[in-house]
């Protein structure tokens, strides 16, 4: 459980985080979404007690981070994966971290294996690729087997297989009852993992809701449909009040009708559907609708 109340941080003239309040609950993945420079990383640094807030409070398990008795066993964080000393090996890096947290050093081997870095564990990290740094950062976050995780753009730089592994990992961690806060500047990235979303724009929380609710309220509500009988379905959906744009390869792009209504209408008319997908574009529309376009000044 993470609790943030009225958190404010300015750097010189820039207000990075502006009176932010939210709770992150255990058991689900909470997506922390916002465009570049919207204040996601700053909020996480404030939660971790790395930066001092101008106003407001942040607590983890009811306690300010700086007062946690066993921080690494209570919270796992990935902030800046490349912020490691280039001349240490991954194994040595994780070893000092384990020692600092009072974590048995054998956990180092477990997390190295978990993120797929065992083979490269004795190489100096200065030669690592971005994805390898990211894996090392994840290993560091998992080291203390913590009930709360804060991950700042964890899939940044990962290959498709890595992205899928992280998605599965996040879902598993949440299913185990942990509190999982994951930031991203891409809505689509959150689509398959986040159940709850916090959207931040220019330092302010502009939405604190479920992903489903968010798409319903703000998305253009476009749905992609594929069927062997596109002309007939187009007519049926137009009759039901849908706005239908024909696409290639037996596809239709439907607006004005939720996915469920489209499926029902097709079934009633005896039309087979091969695909029925609320379009990814609509999630991105919801996001842009909320936070506007471009980087805050």
């Amino acid at each position: 459980m993470i609790t943030v109340r009225g958190l404010t941080k300015r750097y010189g003239g820039t207000v990075a985080v502006d009176g932010v309040s939210f709770d992150v609950r255990p058991g689900v993945v909470t997506g922390f979404l916002g465009p570049n420079g919207s204040g996601k990383s700053t909020t996480m640094r404030l939660i971790l007690g790395l930066d001092r807030p101008g106003a407001g409070t942040a607590t983890v398990h009811g306690v300010p981070y700086r007062e946690l008795t066993a921080p690494l066993r209570q919270v796992g964080a990935l902030l800046d994966a490349k912020a490691v000393h280039g001349n240490r090996s991954a194994r040595r890096h994780l070893t000092w971290l384990a020692r600092a947290g009072g974590i048995p050093v054998r956990r180092v081997e477990e997390v190295l294996d978990q993120v797929g870095l065992t083979a490269a564990a004795d190489r100096k990290v200065r030669g690592y690729s971005l994805g390898m740094f990211q894996r090392l950062g994840l290993a560091a976050a998992l080291l203390g087997d913590p009930p709360t995780l804060l991950l700042d753009e964890p899939v940044n730089g990962l290959d498709p297989d890595g992205v899928r592994q992280v998605r599965r990992l996040l879902l598993r961690l949440a299913a185990e009852g942990r509190t999982v806060l994951v930031s991203s500047h891409q809505m689509a990235e959150m689509q398959e993992t986040a159940e709850h979303v916090l959207v931040i724009g220019r330092g302010r929380i502009v939405a604190d809701t479920t992903l489903a609710e968010l798409t319903r309220e703000h998305g253009g509500g476009r749905v992609l449909v594929r069927t062997p009988e596109p002309e007939r379905l187009a007519a049926v959906l137009a009759g039901a009040g849908g706005e239908v744009l024909p696409g290639t390869d037996c596809r239709l792009d439907v607006g004005g009708l939720p996915a469920a209504a489209i499926g029902d209408a097709a079934a009633a008319a005896g039309i087979t559907l091969h695909e029925l997908t609320p379009s990814r574009g609509s999630l991105e529309d919801a996001f842009l609708d909320l936070v506007g376009v471009g980087v805050a000044a």
């Binding site: 066993a70 066993r73 000393h85 001349n87 240490r88 000092w96 600092a100 947290g101 009072g102």
Partner: peptide
Amino acid sequence: MTDLRDPGFAATLRSEWTKFASLRSV
């Protein structure tokens, strides 16, 4: 269950020693 015991100053000392001794430049 999470072990909430404070690892204490000894943990920090061992950690800093590991950091220091693991660099060839040192």
